[in-house]
Amino acid sequence: MATYAIGDLQGCFNSLTRLTKTIQFDPKHDRLWFVGDLVNRGPDSLKVLRYIRALGPAAITVLGNHDLFLLAVAAGLTPPRPSDTLTPILEAPDCRDLTQWLRQQPLLYREGDFLLVHAGLLPAWTVEQAEELADEAHTAIRGDQFVTTLRALHPSGSLQWRPDLRGPVRAATIIKVLTRLRACSREGNMESSFSGPPDETPDGFQPWFDVPGRRSAATTIVFGHWAAMGLRLTPNMLALDSGCVYGRQLTAVRLDDGKVFQVGCEETRGRK
């Protein structure tokens, strides 16, 4: 039995198929961990959702910002953008079933020495605190606060975490951290617009994983979201967004021994 963590798919189903063949994935014995952003921008988001859902317990996925955006569009809370490729899902006969399934997926998953999340954790958060907050926000997504939480999340630019936040804004801010964080100040204020490479992080901010004294540093964080950074592997960090949807690679790391597997992406080229 092996467990493979896979980077952002964003609708690149053909690349996923090639990658699962490369690693000789057997759903009877192996497991796939997905870092989120299953959908959008790539051409086959509907196939991706159907495939991962059908894997049942052989797949673990956390929610990414594009997955949450799909839920908001499907709920009529925000319009799609010209660059979105969500229409096949929205028009599919099983759209409701797929979005209901997506709502049940966690924002954070922890097992052994690994923690799976889409974007990152604030430096002041312990792993235990992050688990509690993720469960709190996930309860809002699954339950009666679904609409008010996603409405508070879109747009999210002004949201900044404070422990005294309450209601939908609190849940939306937790979600923003877990699904959109790239850079923050030493005090934990998030930079909300930056998406470039880490060495171009704006003044006054650092990549969240480089902030001194980060309280989750003893746990290996498995995440994606930062395509401009690309694949980066350290003893306590597996950054797996290698830019498949931008014509680069789709990456899997076997968690048992750290071996890296990649396939080139032919589905999209030259997109920034």
Results as ranks from 00 to 15, higher is better:
Thr22Glu: 15
Ile23Gln: 04
Gln24Tyr: 06
Gln24Pro: 06
Phe25Asp: 01
Pro27Glu: 08
Lys28Asp: 15
His29Ala: 14
Asp30Thr: 11
Asp30Asn: 15
Arg31Trp: 00
Leu32Thr: 14
Trp33Ser: 07
Trp33His: 08
Phe34Tyr: 13
Phe34Gly: 01
Phe34His: 06
Val35Thr: 15
Val35Leu: 08
Gly36Asn: 03
Gly36Thr: 07
Gly36Gln: 07
Asp37Leu: 11
Leu38Lys: 02
Leu38Arg: 06
Leu38Pro: 02
Leu38Tyr: 04
Leu38Trp: 04
Val39Cys: 06
Asn40Leu: 04
Asn40Ala: 08
Asn40Arg: 02
Arg41His: 15
Arg41Thr: 12
Arg41Glu: 08
Gly42Cys: 09
Pro43Tyr: 10
Pro43Cys: 14
Pro43Phe: 01
Asp44Ala: 15
Asp44Val: 01
Asp44Asn: 12
Ser45Ala: 14
Ser45Phe: 08
Leu46Phe: 08
Leu49Phe: 02
Tyr51Phe: 15
Ile52Asp: 03
Ile52Pro: 00
Arg53Ile: 02
Arg53Asp: 09
Ala54Pro: 00
Ala54Arg: 14
Leu55Asn: 05
Leu55Gln: 15
Gly56Asp: 12
Pro57Asn: 10
Pro57Arg: 10
Ala58Met: 02
Ala58Val: 10
Ala58Pro: 10
Ala59Trp: 02
Ile60Ala: 02
Ile60Gly: 03
Thr61Trp: 00
Leu63Gln: 00
Leu63Phe: 09
Leu63Asn: 03
Leu63Cys: 08
Leu63Arg: 05
Gly64Met: 05
Asn65Gly: 06
Asn65Leu: 07
Asn65Pro: 04
His66Asp: 05
His66Ile: 03
Asp67Ala: 05
Leu68Trp: 03
Leu68Asn: 00
Phe69Gln: 03
Phe69Val: 00
Phe69Ser: 01
Leu70Trp: 02
Leu71Asn: 01
Leu71Gln: 12
Ala72Ile: 04
Ala72Gly: 07
Ala72Met: 05
Ala72Phe: 05
Val73Asn: 02
Ala74Tyr: 15
Ala74Ser: 13
Ala74Cys: 11
Ala74Val: 01
Ala75Thr: 06
Gly76Val: 09
Gly76His: 10
Leu77Ala: 09
Thr78Leu: 07
Thr78Asn: 01
Thr78Gly: 00
Pro79Arg: 12
Pro79Ala: 14
Pro79Trp: 07
Arg81Pro: 07
Arg81Ala: 14
Arg81Asn: 11
Pro82Ser: 11
Ser83Lys: 13
Ser83Asp: 11
Ser83Thr: 13
Ser83Gln: 09
Ser83Trp: 06
Asp84Ala: 10
Thr85Cys: 05
Thr85Glu: 05
Thr85Asn: 07
Leu86Lys: 00
Leu86Gly: 01
Leu86Asp: 01
Leu86Met: 12
Pro88His: 08
Pro88Trp: 09
Pro88Gln: 05
Ile89Thr: 00
Leu90Tyr: 10
Leu90Gly: 06
Glu91Met: 06
Pro93Ile: 06
Pro93Asp: 11
Asp94Val: 10
Asp94Phe: 13
Cys95Lys: 11
Cys95Glu: 12
Cys95Gly: 04
Arg96Ala: 10
Arg96Tyr: 05
Arg96Leu: 10
Asp97Trp: 02
Asp97Val: 02
Leu98Ile: 04
Leu98Phe: 07
Leu98Asp: 00
Thr99Cys: 14
Thr99Lys: 08
